[in-house]
Design a protein around this nucleic acid. Sequence first.
DNA 1: CCTTTTTTGTTCCTTTTTTCACAACACTGA
DNA 2: TCAGTGTTGTGAAAAAAGGAACAAAAAAGG
Lengths: 214, 214
Amino acid sequence: MSSQHVPQATAERLPLYYRTLQHLVTIGKTRISSSEFGNLVQIDSTTIRKDFSYFGALGRKGYGYDTQHLMEFLRKTLYQDELSKVVLIGVGHLGTALLNHNFQKNNNTKIVRAYDVDPKKIGTEISGTEICAMDELAGADNHDITAAILTVPAAHAQEAADLALASGIRGFLNFSPTTLSLPSNVYVRHVDMTVELQALIYFLNHAMEQRNSQ
Amino acid sequence: MSSQHVPQATAERLPLYYRTLQHLVTIGKTRISSSEFGNLVQIDSTTIRKDFSYFGALGRKGYGYDTQHLMEFLRKTLYQDELSKVVLIGVGHLGTALLNHNFQKNNNTKIVRAYDVDPKKIGTEISGTEICAMDELAGADNHDITAAILTVPAAHAQEAADLALASGIRGFLNFSPTTLSLPSNVYVRHVDMTVELQALIYFLNHAMEQRNSQ
DNA sequence: CCTTTTTTGTTCCTTTTTTCACAACACTGA
DNA sequence: TCAGTGTTGTGAAAAAAGGAACAAAAAAGG
Ligand SMILES: NC(=O)c1ccc[n+]([C@@H]2O[C@H](COP(=O)([O-])OP(=O)(O)OC[C@H]3O[C@@H](n4cnc5c(N)ncnc54)[C@H](O)[C@@H]3O)[C@@H](O)[C@H]2O)c1
Ligand SMILES: NC(=O)c1ccc[n+]([C@@H]2O[C@H](COP(=O)([O-])OP(=O)(O)OC[C@H]3O[C@@H](n4cnc5c(N)ncnc54)[C@H](O)[C@@H]3O)[C@@H](O)[C@H]2O)c1
């Protein structure tokens, strides 16, 4: 039962569950049923229950789920209770926003260092995070760094990723609108806000009118 | 054949295809096979061919796809050749980054107006986009606006969305880490960068070690 | 203590998405 | 012109994801 193989789709939902549980704990809600939780995150309650069941019996019949317990379980599952250190490459508009944010809410992840090529930025600090030269990245040993956030212009994304890879980084969150070519033992996630906006517009133009005409 | 029902998964990939084709046209590549294209976007070539086939026969056997033609077809499909106007709500760190960016590359979408509650920001401009008071949103007629980009703090996201909805907006790109509750004739897309980073870390911890042990 | 209500965990069925396999067709070069 | 090669478009199979239904267990309320 416990933790056989967790489907990709389930794994993608875990962070949403975790964040929602954090919120519930904060507002003092100690228990929740799968259907109430489902309403909250807008996912079918069966899907919720099945997702949790991959990790064993986390709930109690006739009661629901203990929010505190479930949250802690997910925290361990997601982070294995270690602080995940990440670096950010490209301190431009988007990079600066991310540094200022620095995933404050979420104390298990921290941007520990930033890199850029701009001499004006190198040596300065944003929100307590120091900005270093790209040359330093090339020589660094970053095996303790979980991931690199890439917020450089698309034309430089591959180059920046290669440097990070050489320094020992094995995870990438790529914000540039370009596909990276990296070895298969490296994990890349792509966040493309332009694509998101285009997809939204497409669905408004097509999917919606279909739904309306039914 | 042509445009029966386009699966959700296919529709989600169209913007990526479009962007990649733009790049190919820019660098002067006039034709491409599904397998070469597939390598580029890291999607199986069969999936590429099937995706395109929902729109009819866009390629030529023994030749491949004409990049210019395919790009133009996708542009029409995605935008129906109209400029999509969007507004942005919440001119903070992230909102400012988006305004500075303003989807320059992509001339079919434009942030025409921004809204905030901060009196210091109201009346100023960022990258040519004027920042208005939220009160103006409440009274505005925004039926010509395709979508609203929400970059307000999570605690205010629902409230901001409700105002936008009342002014006639029917599409939302929500960057706040919260689930919005809106009528079903409204389309909401959620971009959660925190979740993306958590998912990345989860996959690094679990999926990767599985792949390695095989 | 017993009955009724709630709610999980899971089985089974449906839908969606991906992948395989290949016939059909169009280019290419001699 | 014609053999040979490349590449699409698609039907059929496989895999993944989603959702209905319900037995079993626990809680709640007398
Ligand atoms: N700003 C946004 O809202 C937004 C939205 C969607 C996508 N993006 C994408 O995110 C990326 C960054 O966008 P931005 O608006 O922050 O751009 P930006 O131009 O403001 O910042 C880019 C930063 O990267 C640095 N840089 C350039 N080349 C580098 C290199 N080789 N190594 C390290 N650093 C380098 C620059 O000095 C600059 O500080 C782009 O790919 C952009 O397409 C941004
Ligand atoms: N900055 C990031 O990199 C980042 C990363 C992930 C998620 N987010 C999310 O994006 C959202 C915005 O983040 P941010 O860093 O830009 O925050 P921020 O605090 O810098 O900006 C928020 C802006 O919204 C305005 N605002 C507040 N209440 C409002 C209301 N009711 N109506 C209109 N405007 C209002 C504020 O005046 C401010 O300008 C947050 O929900 C945050 O969690 C941001």
